[in-house]
């Protein structure tokens, strides 16, 4: 479980995501999978499908892809694989993660905010997987994390000391603070305290836990409260006992 998946729209922040992936320890060889998602046109015949299917890349995307290849070429233990995925489903993604031995998903901000239906659906499916997800922030160029703040959900069973094992040794940060949210009201009261802690302790990563949720395709992107701090959020799936 040591390969890394980066679902991408090949915008500029894919480079940051790749940098973060490359900053991982190079002890074992790893594969970084860039996954591009494409909607499949609703067609009646194969010929029609081939005519309607557009799988070309824009100039900017080509450029970013080239840059990614260049970056990986400096790291002999890393391999870059570009995967074009036409339409996606829960079992398909689960098998994909299993087959590629994915141990970490890095989400660039543009992918997270993408309005394309397939990207939004894929995002929800990914959040239901049990692989740790690192969501990068919009203004982000740091790719080494050293100090983390663990934001504990009220009904969570995960303790700070268990987190490093659950993340599977992908990062070398240290959890130095921990806050617990009891309810929404408490959330509002806690926000200034959290800002204060982030500033004072030099926190550069937030850690939260998530539970699988029912998938609904609402247009509105419901951002998690922890994403509002402008810091990367590492989301770990809570184990089911």
């Amino acid at each position: 479980m040591n390969n890394i998946l980066i679902p991408t729209t090949l915008q500029k922040d894919t480079v940051y995501a790749l940098k973060t992936a490359l900053s991982q320890s190079e002890e074992n060889s790893k594969t970084i999978v860039l996954m591009l998602l494409k909607d499949t046109p609703d067609t009646a015949s194969a010929a029609f499908w081939l005519r309607d299917m557009q799988n070309g890349l824009t100039g900017l995307q080509e450029e970013i892809l080239e840059q990614c290849h260049d970056m990986v070429s400096f790291h002999p233990n890393f391999k870059l694989q570009v995967h074009q995925q036409f339409s996606v489903s829960g079992p398909l993604l689960r098998n994909f993660i299993e087959a590629h031995n994915i141990g970490l998903i890095i989400l660039p901000d543009t992918f997270r905010k993408s309005q394309l239906e397939i990207n939004r659906y894929c995002l929800k499916l990914l959040k239901n997987s049990n692989v740790p997800i690192l969501q990068l922030a919009a203004e982000f160029d740091e790719h080494q994390f050293s100090k983390a703040l663990y934001i504990e959900n009220s009904d969570s069973n995960v303790q700070a000391k268990d987190l490093p094992k659950m993340i599977g040794g992908h990062f070398s940060f240290r959890i130095i603070s921990q806050a617990k949210f009891f309810d929404d009201q408490n959330h509002e009261e806690m926000t200034p305290v959290l800002y204060d802690t982030i500033y004072k302790n030099g926190i550069d990563l937030l850690i939260e836990t998530r539970k699988p949720q029912k998938i609904s395709l609402s247009k509105k992107h419901k951002s998690s409260l922890n994403e509002n701090f402008g810091l990367p959020v590492l989301s770990v799936c809570e184990p089911v006992y």
Partner: peptide
């Protein structure tokens, strides 16, 4: 009361 505190992990 421990609710409004951000705890340090040391």
């Amino acid at each position: 009361d421990g609710q409004k505190q951000v705890k340090d992990i040391a």
